[in-house]
Amino acid sequence: MPTTARVPSVPPPGDADDLRERARGALLGLAVGDALGAPAENMKPSEIRRRWGRITGYVAEHPAGTDDTEYAIFSGLLLARHGSALTVAHVETAWHQWIADLDEGPFRGAGFSERGTLENLRRGLAAPISAQHRHAWSDGLAMRAAPFGVFAAGRPREAARLVAIDGSVSHDGEGIYGGQAVAAGVAAAMAGARVDAVVAAALAAIPDDCWTSRSLRRAVAVADRGERAVRSAVVIGGYPWTDLAPEAVGLAFGAYAAARGDFAAAVLTAVNMGRDADTTAAVAGALSGATCGASAIPLDWSGAIGPARGSCLPSMRGHHVLDIAELLTPDSEEGEA
């Protein structure tokens, strides 16, 4: 169980306008980070430098969010519908109605954890058995965790509780912990917590002795030495898969801490470290976007984000992350449900 000995002090959330600005920043920041990082996914920093030098903006001709953004929209819609009453049955039903029982897009459900989950659901397996596949430790929950922090602004424990319910269909162990750390961190940032309090909230939501906690602590401890030190502290050298939740979450929080919450610096640090760059930049973007608000995101970056294309989840086509932000803020009827 998470420790209760060091629960951080998180300020109360601001007024509705402040929360809306931070909510827009968190979810737009996620989508921007996803789009910025997508071309560098699975690359080493040396490969990034050879191809682009240092990435300082979009390098794709038509930047767009990937499965990270579309699954975050999926979880945001589910949370807007059920709020704190969310159950595993609600999540499992949504996976069937919106994904498993429909034709998939060109990315066929996206990452390994999602594909393993879909295969199990289609075989008739239910949660938590549906999460028993080889990639239950992936960052697939962490990439869609930000909406829970937006919804539970100032309540990191509630954000962590809800994201674990969502994740029980697709993840287990470190995969759940990665999602809880991100959701709790975003919840603290939504209330205007300082960077160190955001990190503390994330750590308080997960067991002290788990791999995700150790990775996150190592990354933050060397953050002032820059991205090379952060990467060296957490990356599993020689391991072929880049979607490890402990690694991705450590890199994202390391980038956030290195930038002291600054949006552009946090996202670009994550992008230029490579590995699962779309996810690490999406998480760093959600954390720093919640910290700084939507106005801190460069206009040429935010302006490129349109409605989801449905390239991974056809049922999410046409939904915009800013619409999800509105649904999850307090003055929205859906967000209060």
Rank of each mutant, 00 (worst) to 15 (best):
S295A: 13
E41S: 03
D15F: 04
H135R: 07
R6H: 14
T291W: 07
V220I: 14
S315D: 13
G335E: 00
G175D: 01
G335L: 01
R214S: 02
T56E: 15
W137C: 03
T93A: 12
P156C: 03
G254T: 13
A304K: 14
G226C: 02
A258M: 06
G53N: 03
H135Q: 07
A200E: 15
T66Q: 05
T4M: 06
M143F: 02
I165L: 09
W301D: 10
C210I: 13
P330M: 06
G285F: 06
L299K: 12
D68K: 09
R6N: 14
G285I: 08
L121D: 10
E334Q: 07
W95S: 12
N272P: 04
T66S: 15
V220F: 05
R54T: 12
L328I: 10
G178D: 02
E174W: 10
A5G: 00
L19D: 01
W137K: 05
A255K: 00
P13M: 06
A126G: 01
I206H: 13
L125N: 09
G57K: 07
T242E: 10
F263W: 13
L86H: 04
G192M: 09
I324T: 11
D139C: 15
T4P: 00
A31P: 03
S168Q: 12
R155F: 05
A248D: 12
S332R: 07
G250R: 15
P12M: 01
D196R: 10
D278L: 08
